[in-house]
Design a protein around this nucleic acid. Structure first.
Length: 207
DNA sequence: CATGGGATTGACT
DNA sequence: GTCAATCCCATGC
């Protein structure tokens, strides 16, 4: 085999249609997919679904300047600042007019780990992207990426690379929210040490 | 225009 | 386990 360049390892870039379906299905399906920005890239190992019908979703309040992107075409990035410090990255789902998105919560780094280490100030690969605010820092995803088309970049989502297309999944309740805490709309790859804490019950039992 | 909530993290006890 | 840091934006006066 010839040496594999980074883009080839990232897999086929997803289209808008790949993200237009039910947000819970897309959240499940994005586990094992890749996200790339510049030379940095990682495999998605943790997601959460948010839908306008439930109060934890920003789109619950309806269309405002903040939530406009959530109601737009699927396949856009929704990036917002959390707790005044962190940028959190979401992929907009469902048809235009429906406010829904998948929050990307954790990655396993696969490319340009040294660039991530420089941005994060930690060395362990397991900890570079093991949280929604950590991965945006590691990949240099900022608020300016709000609304960008994920099929055209500069932030791209790709299909699962070899070995990740049939990864095991566990579901659990979402993290850090106060509204609609009962929905099991969090999905994690089994066997990944990059999943953020606390781990879902099913993952703790499997460990 | 002022206020307060929030899908977090890292440092500390 | 607790807590502060720190900013965007929805809401209400």
């Amino acid at each position: 085999m010839t040496s594999r360049a980074v883009p080839a390892a990232v897999g086929q870039i997803l289209t808008r249609d790949d993200l237009a379906g039910s947000v819970v299905d897309v959240a499940r399906g994005l586990i094992g997919c890749t996200i790339r920005h510049g030379e940095t890239a990682g495999v998605i190992v943790e997601t959460e679904a948010y839908h306008e019908s439930e109060p934890a979703c920003h789109a619950y309040v309806g269309m405002t300047s903040r939530t406009r992107v959530l109601f737009g075409a699927p396949g856009a990035a929704y990036v917002y600042r959390s707790y005044g410090i962190h940028a959190l990255f979401n992929a907009v789902c469902e048809p235009a007019g429906v406010g829904a998105a998948v929050l990307i919560r954790a990655l396993e780094p696969i490319a340009a780990l040294d660039a991530m280490r420089a941005r994060r100030g930690v060395h362990s690969a397991d900890q570079l992207c093991s949280g929604p605010g950590k991965l945006t820092r590691a990949l240099a995803i900022e608020l300016e990426h709000n609304g960008v088309d994920l099929a055209h970049g500069p932030v791209l989502i790709g299909a699962p690379p070899p070995g990740w297309d049939d990864v095991g999944l566990v579901s659990g309740t979402r993290i850090g929210i106060t509204k609609a805490p009962e929905l099991e709309w969090r999905f994690c790859a089994t066997g990944s040490r990059s999943v953020s804490r606390p781990w879902p019950v099913a993952l703790r039992e499997a460990a």
